[in-house]
């Protein structure tokens, strides 16, 4: 249950209300919302107490989330939340583009890739240093050295970086290299030990949807992060496994408007991992922006035929520039805009 209190309710009254609820054995959270106090009650509220709450003068509205989540529920914020990754905002009526190679493949390569990403007009640099590959014989990434190469390239081009963490034991290395956003991949979406470990790291988290996860399971995973203290969560739809075998996965755009109703979290769409075929990515990106995505995540490689992973789904830099231009047009006609480029360090 989410309680919206009357605007201007004094802090002492909010505190007294929470104390009363906690004395009843109910755990509560106070929203970071600044416009008015919003209190989430985690546990099931007995009917008599719910009726009493509705009568209290400081309570203006009572909301029931559509699922068994609280802190990621739409009603826990007055407006949809905006996540800041470096100087780039996700959400809030602006569309941002995350781009970069699937894998970090060396320092010089990353400088070249980052330059291409910036030139094309994308906002955030991605690249995998720790790679969750389907077979143990595929390239597993450069690990900590890859983090350094990614961060150096991002700093040179003024692009905040996003990269996947697979093991909580690696978190100190991610923080030492000042990774701007931690990505939790599809395979780890329900790795609750990992979610709890990174929730308190003070970094934004990009949470990919699991290969076979329902929307509710995905939001429960996001709730783990929020309950652990992470209020900077971005959801990423990357396709789900279905009976269709013509594409790698099926991009589930149906859930975008539904997520707008259920959660305040911004949503990014990754059409590359859904399609697995580069030429399908531009039209899927257009569809995602038109359906309300706050951002697009794609892979780009200067020489896809030589990529150490996922080459067939990598765009060429010129194709990325076209995708950014089309996203700008579609964002504008849907009443939004493309995010401004981050400041250049030069």
């Amino acid at each position: 249950m989410i309680l919206h209190l009357v605007q201007g309710t004094p802090q002492e009254s909010v505190h007294a209300l929470r104390s009363m609820l906690e004395a009843e054995g109910l755990r509560t959270f106070l929203s970071p919302e600044s416009s008015r106090p919003i209190v989430a009650i985690v546990d099931k509220v007995p009917a008599a107490l719910a009726a009493a709450l509705a009568e209290r003068p400081e309570v203006s509205e009572i909301h029931q989330p559509a699922g068994d989540w609280r802190l990621v529920d739409r009603s826990y914020r007055e407006l949809p939340s905006v996540v800041r990754i470096g100087g780039v905002k996700l959400g809030g009526g602006q569309v941002s583009i995350i781009a970069g190679p699937c894998s970090v493949e060396g320092a010089d390569f990353m400088f070249e890739a980052a330059r291409a990403v910036r030139s094309a007009g994308a906002h955030l640099l991605r690249g995998g240093a720790f790679k969750p590959r389907s077979t143990p014989y595929a390239f597993q990434g450069f690990g900590v050295e890859g983090l350094r190469q990614l961060k150096d390239a991002g700093e040179r081009e003024g692009l905040p970086v996003v990269t996947e963490i697979m093991d909580a034991a690696d978190l100190p290395a991610f923080l030492d290299h000042d990774v701007d956003c931690l990505q939790v991949g599809a395979r780890n979406m329900q790795n609750f030990t990992l979610l709890k470990a990174i929730a308190g790291a003070g970094r934004p988290v990009l949470l990919k949807r699991g290969l076979s996860a329902t929307v509710k399971e995905w939001l429960y995973a996001a709730e783990y992060l929020a309950a652990g203290g992470c209020h900077q969560v971005v959801l990423c739809e990357r396709g789900i496994r279905t009976f269709e075998s013509a594409t790698r996965n099926t991009l589930d755009l149906t859930i975008l408007p539904l997520l707008r109703e259920w959660t305040h979290l911004p949503v990014v769409v990754d059409p590359a991992h859904a399609a697995g075929i580069a030429r399908l990515i531009p039209p899927l990106s257009r569809a995602a922006v038109a359906a309300g995505a706050d951002g697009i995540a794609v892979e780009v490689h200067p020489r896809p035929e030589l990529a150490r992973s996922d080459g067939p789904q990598a765009l060429l830099p010129g194709e990325l520039a076209g995708l950014v231009a089309e996203a700008r047009v579609i964002a504008a006609v849907t009443g939004r805009g493309l995010h401004a480029l981050p400041a250049s360090p030069r």
Binding site: R328, V329, A331, A332, V333, G335, G337, L338, A340, L341, S344
Partner: peptide
């Protein structure tokens, strides 16, 4: 409204030329 939004977006993009 779409034309106006696109024109504003065009002006914003031009402002990025430095």
């Amino acid at each position: 409204r779409s034309l106006a939004a696109l024109l504003h977006e065009r002006a914003r993009l031009l402002a990025d030329f430095r």
